[in-house]
């Protein structure tokens, strides 16, 4: 896999923080409108991460005006301007799909208090 690794290396971003399902993120995405470009923030909980190398994707869920909204981002895309981890959540699964069925107080995630690098 040596050659493949070398080809993919240049497309894997090193400036994104490490995070996992349950964490709250603020993702800033560049959006092109005609010839103008603006940055759109998206804040929510990571419900899954999948893929490896340049193909890695993650899904962020938030409740917007009472409606659940999920957005899937490529982890290494140049369109993702920045990812900020707001809090670490304590969950026991890597894919927290059960969050979709919960609302209100039940949809809270306990915060992890230990510090991770």
């Amino acid at each position: 896999m040596g050659i493949m690794h070398d080809v993919e290396k240049g497309f894997i971003r090193t400036d994104v923080p490490s995070f996992s399902a349950g964490d709250s993120l603020l993702v800033k995405v560049k959006i092109k409108e005609g010839d103008k470009e603006r940055v759109q923030p998206f804040e929510g909980v990571v419900i899954k991460k999948r893929g490896s190398g340049p193909r890695a994707m993650f899904t962020v869920r938030k409740i917007s005006y009472g409606v659940g909204v999920e957005r899937i981002f490529p982890l290494n895309a140049p369109a993702v301007e920045s990812i900020t981890v707001l809090s670490r959540g304590k969950v026991r699964k890597s894919k927290i799909y059960y969050l979709r069925k919960l609302s209100g107080k039940a949809a809270r995630i306990k915060e992890k208090r230990d510090s991770r690098p």
Binding site: I3, M4, V7, E8, F11, A77, P78
Partner: peptide
């Protein structure tokens, strides 16, 4: 043929590529 992967082009779109040595 080494295999397939995907890369990001200069304008940010994903390009599926085959790597050939």
């Amino acid at each position: 043929k080494i295999g397939m992967t995907q890369i990001f082009s200069a304008d940010g779109t994903v390009v599926p590529v085959t790597v050939i040595e």
